[in-house]
Amino acid sequence: MRAGETNNSGVLDELPGDLMMWVLIVSELLVFGAGLAAFLGVRVVDPDGFAAARNYLHPALAGLNTIVLITSGYFAARALDLSKGQRQSSVRWNLLWAGLLGAVFLAIKIYEYADVAGQGISTETHPFFTFYYLLTGFHALHVLAGMVILALVSWKRTSRNVEVGTAFWHMVDLVWVLLFPVIYLLA
């Protein structure tokens, strides 16, 4: 192996966890990042319309969901830390708490969607709501996928599975902390 190849491998080896999970994390950040930039780009031509549309949302509920998801990430981080030791039953409980809080996040999100849709608002009402449903809906699907992954990982617990599963969950958390302020606080 040539010296250059060794160095390249060394840089990648510094990344904690699975390389493919980092490829997924960067891919997801690019997709949601493009969506958020497009959201604010479209807002440029209609800032008043976007401000009026945002009044139909519930920033307090979204703020509560932020606390729920951050706390869920805390349990996932604890699970990963515990998985490196001997307390395997605690790993399972922390993973289950993380997943349960994911379910709470989705329940609040469904309530929010029902309330907004109940006001007769759809994806066609205004470009704000097209992006709102698209970005938050796509994120909610990731939460659902993350819950399934956490359940599988708590069933088939190995330190590698826990590392990959919790990394996916933190990615969902990471996307939300960027998505929440742009859609609910800035628009």
Partner: peptide
């Protein structure tokens, strides 16, 4: 999140 939870 990147530093403490994802281990960077």
């Amino acid at each position: 999140i990147l530093s403490r939870y994802l281990g960077l």
